[in-house]
């Protein structure tokens, strides 16, 4: 097994210390930090995401893998900046106004990060105005909205309506998700993508920015 495959394996098992040690070793061996990111961390996150989608692993496994990814990224990031590595896109994500559930939103953010996106996590109870303001500020590609309550899912429409009102609807890809959300609902309010789980969200986001 190559060292990058090993990093990916340990990441999938959530072994932060091993991931850290191996990345340091890989850097010493002169391996390109971008390669470590792609073939080590991102490949590991993509595999664990696939397993999560197929229900072979569950929330805890993804959380632990994401931890290991973050430990790895903290070592890699300075080198990546030096190398001028660009994210594949920017995502502003948050839970809509009135809703305080954030476990699914966090998981989605983790897997998007693992897929190479730069994430601006707005937290919970985020107003339509705040989403828009942040998206404009960071020049986002995607706005990701999460809602877990049948009451607050209606807030997603508010965000889309605000985009329309400001003539910015076409500028952003709007992705929505959360337990009560369905494809029909996404169509009804005019969102671009709905995915039932976080791993599919990362895949859809990648495709969406590629074809933008």
């Amino acid at each position: 097994m190559s060292i990058l495959e090993e990093i990916s394996e340990f990441l999938q098992k959530g072994k932060r210390k091993n991931v850290k040690a191996l990345i340091e070793q890989a850097l010493e061996e002169g391996i390109d930090p971008k390669m470590i990111l792609k073939e080590g961390l991102m490949s590991g996150m993509s595999i664990i995401g696939g397993k999560f989608k197929r229900e072979e692993v569950f929330v805890p496994d993804v959380m632990m893998a994401a931890r290991a990814m973050n430990v790895g990224l903290s070592i890699l990031e300075p080198k990546l900046v030096e190398a001028g590595n660009e994210p594949i896109g920017r995502v502003v994500i948050g839970t809509v106004q009135g809703d305080l559930h954030d476990i699914g939103k966090n998981l989605t953010a983790m897997l998007l990060k693992g897929a190479g996106f730069e994430i601006y996590d707005m937290g919970v109870d985020v107003s339509a105005e705040a989403f828009l303001e942040k998206a404009e500020e960071v020049n986002a590609d995607i706005i990701g909205l999460s809602a877990l309550l049948s009451t607050t899912m209606l807030q997603m429409k508010e965000v889309i309506d605000l985009l329309k009102e400001k003539n910015l609807r076409d500028k952003y890809i709007v992705m929505i998700g959360g337990a009560p959300i369905t494809n029909e609902f996404a169509e009804e309010i005019g969102a671009d993508y709905y995915t039932p789980d976080a791993a599919s969200a990362a895949e859809a986001a990648k495709k969406a920015v590629e074809s933008k």
């Binding site: 959530g14 929330v59 805890p60 496994d61 959380m63 632990m64 931890r67 476990i103 966090n106």
Partner: peptide, 9 residues
């Protein structure tokens, strides 16, 4: 939840 899942893992 995240800390506890990591503790368990």
């Amino acid at each position: 939840m995240e800390e506890l899942f990591c503790d368990m893992g």
